[in-house]
C-alpha cells in the first residue's frame, strides 16, 4: 500500500469562492444538484450528497449586543477580526466540506456487496460497477456524506480523485483552491502542518481555532480528510463527536442472539403441555 493520502482543509483561509465545488463537478462529471435558492447566506448548495462532493458552508456570525455575555461593545467597538462591518454581521466562517475518508469507515463496513473499498491511498471509494443501490451506506455514515442518486440507483461520494491520484496528480478541488485552504498530501505530513497552524492561530488571538478529525483516537479512528475550524463543529453542520456505528456491532449481535433464544424459548413454552392431534 502506498502512503495514506489526505486532505487538510484550513477553513481560516477559505474565501468561499466555491472553486472546489466547480472543479470537483467538472473533473468528476458530477451532475447538477438543483438550482435552488436556499436563503442560507451565500450557500445555495446545502450539503454533501450524491451530486455534491465538495460543499462550501457560509456561516454569518451575528454582531452580539453589549448586554450579551461575551459580546462586543456594539458599534463602539473595533471591527471584528475579519474586518467585516455589516448590518448585524460581525464575521464570516466559510468551510469546504468533503467526505472524511474515515480510518474506521461505517459506509465501507456495512456495504453488503463489497462495492465500497479502501484504496492503496487509504481512501474510501465506491466501485460503480458493483454497487447495487441497497442504500445501507447512506444512514450508516456519521457525517451524512454518501447518498444514493435516485435517478441512477447507485451510491456516490467523493473519491478523493482516485483517478487523478493514480496519475500522480492532486485532487481537482485542492488544485483549484486559490488560497490553499484545501491542502492535499501524505496524511502524517498534513497532521503535523495542521498542528503548527492551529498553534500559531491560537497564539495570534484566535482561541476558537481547533482541529477536527485529526485525532487518530476519536470515534472514527481519525479522518483522512480533516479540518481546522474556528467554531464548534455543529455550527458547520458537522457532528461534534462522531462514532463509527460498527463499533457497537458485536454488542448488537449479542442482544439479537439473546432475543433469538427468547423467541425459541417462548415458542417451546407455547407448546408446553399440549399434545398433538392425530
Amino acid at each position: 500500500m502506498a502512503e495514506r493520502m489526505g486532505f487538510f482543509t484550513d477553513t481560516s483561509v477559505c474565501i468561499g469562492c466555491k472553486a472546489c465545488e466547480v472543479a470537483c463537478k467538472e473533473w468528476n462529471d458530477v451532475p447538477d444538484d438543483g438550482f435552488v435558492f436556499r436563503a442560507t447566506s451565500y450557500d445555495n448548495t446545502g450539503g454533501l450528497g450524491a451530486d455534491t462532493w465538495r460543499h462550501v458552508a457560509f456561516i454569518e456570525q451575528p454582531r452580539r449586543g453589549p448586554e450579551e455575555p461575551g459580546g462586543r461593545e456594539g458599534s463602539k467597538g473595533p471591527p471584528g477580526p475579519e474586518g467585516a462591518e455589516g448590518q448585524g454581521v460581525e464575521g464570516w466562517l466559510m468551510s469546504s466540506d468533503v467526505c472524511k475518508h474515515c480510518t474506521h469507515a461505517a459506509c465501507l463496513d456495512v456495504c453488503p456487496t463489497g462495492a465500497l473499498f479502501r484504496t492503496e491511498f487509504g481512501t474510501v471509494v465506491v466501485q460503480e460497477d458493483v454497487c447495487n443501490g441497497c442504500g445501507y451506506c447512506v444512514p450508516a455514515c456519521p457525517y451524512g456524506v454518501i447518498d444514493r442518486r435516485e435517478r441512477d440507483g447507485r451510491a456516490f461520494k467523493c473519491t478523493m480523485c482516485y483517478d487523478r491520484q493514480l496519475g500522480g496528480l492532486e485532487p481537482a478541488c485542492a488544485k483549484a483552491c486559490p488560497t490553499d485552504s484545501i491542502q492535499f498530501g501524505p496524511l502524517e505530513e498534513l497532521r503535523a502542518r495542521a498542528q503548527e497552524r492551529v498553534e500559531r492561530l491560537r497564539g495570534e488571538g484566535r482561541p476558537q481555532a481547533r482541529l477536527y478529525g485529526a485525532d487518530p483516537d476519536d470515534g472514527v479512528g481519525g479522518d483522512g480528510a480533516f479540518f481546522l475550524l474556528l467554531d464548534e463543529p455543529e455550527v458547520y453542520g458537522l457532528p461534534p463527536d462522531p462514532v463509527v456505528t460498527t463499533r457497537d456491532l458485536p454488542a448488537m449481535w449479542r442482544w439479537a442472539a439473546g432475543a433469538a433464544l427468547c423467541l425459541v424459548g417462548a415458542t417451546a413454552l407455547s407448546f408446553l403441555g399440549r399434545g398433538g392431534n392425530r
Binding site: G49, G144, E234, G237, P239
Partner: peptide, 16 residues
C-alpha cells in the same frame, strides 16, 4: 439548546 448549520440535518435519513 444546541447549535446547528441552519437547522439542517447532519446525517442522511434512511432512503429505504
Amino acid at each position: 439548546e444546541f447549535r446547528s448549520y441552519y437547522g439542517q440535518p447532519i446525517i442522511k435519513p434512511p432512503i429505504w
